[in-house]
Deep mutational scan, measured.
Amino acid sequence: NQASVVANTLIPINTALTLVMMRSEVVTPVGIPAEDIPRLVSMTVNRAVPLGTTLMPDMVKGYA
């Protein structure tokens, strides 16, 4: 099973992502692959992402 990116904290809308905000976890449904974490750093989220939420491609500006 592939690990996905999961919010390690509440990420407010329009926040630039940092490494400490994200962790990898095997979850269903599958979200952004964990190997993309380095690429996500400094990208911003377009909605509030609660703790434990899987990051989906449409949640990160410029990812999809």
Rank of each mutant, 00 (worst) to 15 (best):
P33G: 06
M43K: 08
I32C: 03
A3H: 12
S42N: 13
A16R: 09
V49R: 03
M22Q: 00
P38G: 10
T9V: 12
A3T: 15
I11F: 02
A7V: 07
I11K: 00
L10V: 11
I37M: 14
A3K: 14
P57R: 09
T54R: 03
V27T: 06
L40K: 00
P29L: 05
V20P: 12
P33K: 07
T44K: 15
D36L: 12
N46L: 13
P38E: 09
N1R: 15
T15K: 07
V27L: 05
L40G: 01
M21A: 05
T53W: 15
A3F: 11
M43L: 12
L55E: 02
V6M: 06
P29F: 03
V26A: 13
T15I: 06
V20W: 10
R23V: 13
V26P: 08
R39M: 11
G62Q: 11
T53I: 10
T9D: 09
T53Y: 07
V60P: 02
A48I: 07
V30G: 12
A3Y: 10
T54W: 02
A16E: 08
E35H: 15
N1P: 13
G62S: 07
V30R: 14
L19T: 15
P33M: 08
P57N: 06
M22P: 00
V26S: 08
V49D: 02
S42V: 03
L51Q: 14
G52P: 00
L10Y: 13
M56K: 08
D58H: 14
L19H: 12
E35R: 14
P29M: 05
T54D: 00
V6I: 13
P38V: 10
A16W: 06
V27R: 15
N46G: 07
Q2L: 11
G52D: 14
V30N: 14
N8W: 04
V26N: 13
A16S: 10
M22T: 02
V27C: 04
V30S: 12
D36V: 07
R23K: 11
V49I: 10
A3N: 06
M21S: 09
N46K: 11
A64E: 13
L51E: 15
Q2T: 15
R47E: 09
N1A: 14
V6K: 03
R39Q: 09
L51C: 05
A3R: 15
M22F: 05
T9E: 13
T28L: 15
V5C: 04
V49P: 02
I32Y: 01
P38K: 14
M21Q: 08
E35K: 13
I32R: 00
S42Y: 10
L19S: 07
T54I: 08
V49H: 02
L17G: 00
G31N: 01
S4I: 02
T28F: 09
A16F: 15
L10R: 07
V49S: 02
M59Q: 04
M22W: 02
P50R: 07
E25I: 10
M22A: 00
L51V: 15
I32K: 00
A16P: 11
P29N: 04
